[in-house]
C-alpha cells in the first residue's frame, strides 16, 4: 500500500503577518535559509554618525 505524503505547504503566518508557503510568500526552505543568514546580516547593521543626526535635527529646528 502506498503511503500518503504529509503536506508540507500549510500556510504559516510569519512575524510580519504574511502567509508563508503560499503563492505570495517564500517557501519554507527559503525562509529557513534566510533565517540561517540573518545573524550574519544583522552584523552588518550600522548607524549614521551622531553629527549627521544632529545636523538633521538642527535643520528641522531652523525651518
Amino acid at each position: 500500500m502506498m503511503e500518503t505524503i504529509t503536506p508540507t505547504l500549510n500556510p504559516v503566518v510569519d512575524s510580519n503577518g504574511e502567509l508563508r508557503n503560499t503563492g505570495e510568500a517564500l517557501l519554507r526552505h527559503e525562509i529557513e535559509f534566510l533565517d540561517e543568514l540573518k545573524p550574519a546580516l544583522d552584523q552588518l547593521i550600522k548607524n549614521p554618525s551622531a553629527a549627521v543626526v544632529e545636523h538633521i535635527l538642527a535643520f528641522s529646528k531652523s525651518l
Binding site: 552588518l44 547593521i45 550600522k46 548607524n47 549614521p48 543626526v53 538633521i56 535635527l57 528641522s60 529646528k61
Partner: peptide
C-alpha cells in the same frame, strides 16, 4: 521637535544600513 528625534533614533539603523549597503 523631540518627536523627530525619537523617529530618527527608532529607525536610523534600518534606514542607514539599507542605504549604506
Amino acid at each position: 521637535e523631540a518627536s523627530l528625534s525619537e523617529l530618527i533614533n527608532r529607525h536610523q539603523s534600518r534606514i542607514y544600513t539599507s542605504i549604506y549597503l
